[in-house]
Design a protein around this nucleic acid. Structure first.
Lengths: 341, 341
DNA sequence: AGGAGATGTGCAATCGATTGCATTTTTATT
DNA sequence: AATAAAAATGCAATCGATTGCACATCTCCT
């Protein structure tokens, strides 16, 4: 017969002929227990291989020391970097990280949030799904006073902590850079316009055009889901315009890559004939030929910041809600650098 | 004053003037409760916004419906794909996934495993850290009868479920391919030789040389940690040999890329003068120029399989331990294809 | 009508750790 | 030595859900 059960504080108490309360206090370094007893208890706990059952303690304390993170896709570099940053901070603070992916599906996101709630996460970090959605499930969390931190893709009308990058500025600088390189008909592969970050990027683009007195041609903006298939499709369509563009500001690196491959296969020269820029600095964008100009979004740091904010909120250190706008960095690479400056 | 507390089965019971046991049974569809009562209870539960507290239920049931996954690095494509696969299966089976990264550090891995144990995960999926290590912490799990599934990087002496790819075969085929392409002095950037997968890769390489009656030159094998820095370093060193290699079988795509960049910067032609192959099919290997020949490890499927096995074990459906060896796929790309076949 | 058997509910203990309050023990003071 | 004060420890309830067993109610048959 296998004895599978773990020692509990009661077992320790029994061996030492003391009460479980004393053991509990001793292990938590409560000063009400004499140092001598504390040492004795700790020694025995070690010897018996005692490990506190966090389920029990969490139940009693009405907290789980767990934070949830929900991302659209786990295996996208940006998101996995964020997760990595969250894990880094959480682990150091003694929090467990539970993870789930919405696959950009509204329904799955709702289920995840409900399930995390039922599991009593102490707080939640989320970047919302692309698919349009009500945010009742998130408002529910707010109502239950479960701290919530948005990153990257936020819900504007929910008042809570948010960590975003300066999409407007990034898009503005990208566009300005293309203009500086002498490109004039700049197309924009925009993301779904229900997400603020894509709206901001579009606005940054428009603002840069305006500032440089370039007339805006609506046919140069295509709003897509930013997959490589849709990216290729969009570029094809744009190239068939009576006046095709001479540069592509793509909503992410994936579409920038597909644009590049499509144009290259058509025998077009990049950056001489066409400029291409992406967004997010996926690892591949640096190593493809030509390398892709892009915007760095510091995923790991975003994750760290999000976790710090959330944990601060959980431990009730923070006061009012913050929106942290991290600065972005423009990395000029070959795909748009035709003046070699 | 904010009322933050969630309704419990006792609250429901009180409203209906019945006992909590009945409520519990009704919500769990226990046939001992009449259908009429069940419906009434469920309706009220819904109305009150009742959500079971899984902490309490898990404590009582001595299980957590949670599985842990430990990987060296979350933001590596292969690993994040595995995580994604695990999450996919786990979510469908009603399991929560908690995640942590060892950063390839032995000490952190130990802490993680202990912490997951304290949190009472029902099972653990792990790919062990690169840093050499005892495996006492993992043996502990076995002793406590907590199901354990290794993937990719396994501990041979621990008897449990394992999901690996056929590293030997992959390496053999890679080497054979290089030989078929006419390369003769094939170097190997090997990974740390405390990990079986890297040992297997080396052996597959040796076997292919032997089969083709190519004399093995020990100075052509360099064992490194497979970072891009060490990769560049190793290639440099190999190129300084009296008789430098004409091909590089790199332990992963990262080092293959750094080898390629180094040689390219030296003005060498690839694949004409030097052949390069990697391992793992990172997303960039397809899109760099020249694209890199590599081996596909199906990360998502590995994750799914691992989760299926683990959950099967948790629910005591599986019998004896299995080692699943997934077949690999060789993708020949430009970096090694000089005969254009 | 009486009783067997089926059906429906409730009591109370349990999971393991925590904590307010009560009690015991020790130490200090006069 | 007696008493106050301080220090150490224990009791018992609690967190919320589950479940073995006991009890109550109902159905049906002779």
């Amino acid at each position: 017969m296998i004895k599978n059960s773990e020692p509990t504080i009661h077992d320790i108490a029994r061996v030492l002929s003391i009460s479980a309360s004393t053991v509990s206090r001793a292990l938590n370094d409560n000063s009400r227990i004499s140092l001598k007893t504390r040492d004795k208890i700790k020694a025995l706990a070690l010897e018996m291989g005692y490990r506190p059952n966090s389920l029990a303690s969490n139940l009693r304390n009405k907290k789980s020391k767990t934070i949830g993170i929900v991302v659209p896709l786990i295996n996208r570099y940006f998101f996995s970097s964020v997760i990595s940053g969250v894990e880094d901070v959480a682990f150091k603070s003694g929090f467990t990280v539970v993870i789930s992916q919405s696959s950009d599906l509204a329904q799955k996101e709702i289920e995840i949030v409900h399930s995390m709630f039922a599991n009593r996460v102490d707080g939640l970090i989320i970047s919302i799904a692309m698919e349009p959605n009500t945010s009742d499930h998130l408002k529910l969390l707010r109502k239950k006073h479960i701290p919530l931190v948005f990153f990257d893709r936020v819900v504007p009308e929910i008042e809570t902590d948010k960590i975003v990058v300066d999409d407007f500025d990034g898009a503005f600088r990208i566009t300005q850079h293309l203009i500086d390189q002498g490109y004039r008909r700049i197309a924009h592969l925009a993301g779904p316009q229900n997400l603020t970050s894509y709206i901001d990027r579009k606005n940054g683009y428009l603002e840069a055009l305006k500032k440089n007195e370039i007339t805006f041609d609506p046919s140069l903006i295509v709003s897509i889901r930013l997959t490589s298939e849709e990216g290729t499709q969009a570029v094809k369509q744009l190239m068939n315009l009576p006046q095709p563009p001479d540069a592509f500001f793509c909503g992410n690196d994936t579409t920038a890559l597909s644009a590049m491959i499509y144009l290259r296969d058509q025998g077009r020269r990049i950056p001489e004939d066409f400029g291409i820029v992406g967004f997010s600095n996926e690892p591949f964008s640096k190593v493809v030929t030509p390398s892709i100009t892009t915007i760095v979004q510091p995923g790991f740091e975003i994750g760290q910041k999000a976790a710090e904010l959330l944990i601060g909120r959980i431990e009730e250190r923070e006061q009012s809600f913050k929106t942290i706008i991290l600065p972005i960095e423009l990395i000029v690479r070959e795909s748009s650098n035709r003046r070699k400056n």
